[in-house]
Amino acid sequence: MAAKRMIAVKEFCTHHNLETDFIKQLQHHDLIEMVMVKRTGYIVEKNLPIAEKAARLHNELNVNIEGIHAIFQLLSLVEKKEQEIIQLRRELEFYK
């Protein structure tokens, strides 16, 4: 059951034309979670969008792991600020 919710690192890397080390680096930077089952590395399904986004940034824009890490951090900051703006707009609407 659990295996259905994971994708093998090797399979992912073949599909995206990446070295398996790329995924290890993503894990090293706490960007994704990787689990080992019988000596085979798997990416947890919920981390797949992050891994795919990282793969695109790497393949299409030549961004290295450090750059990807920085992009993810800044995007998370942007998202947080956007949420703040939404909340402030709601409050503004309330006092109108």
Binding site: K53, L57, E60, L61, N62, V63, I71, L75
Partner: peptide, 14 residues
């Protein structure tokens, strides 16, 4: 192309 693609890539401009 690389320079502009980095700036406007959908993944960095959600």
């Amino acid at each position: 192309y690389r320079k502009l693609a980095r700036k406007y890539h959908p993944d960095v401009n959600p």
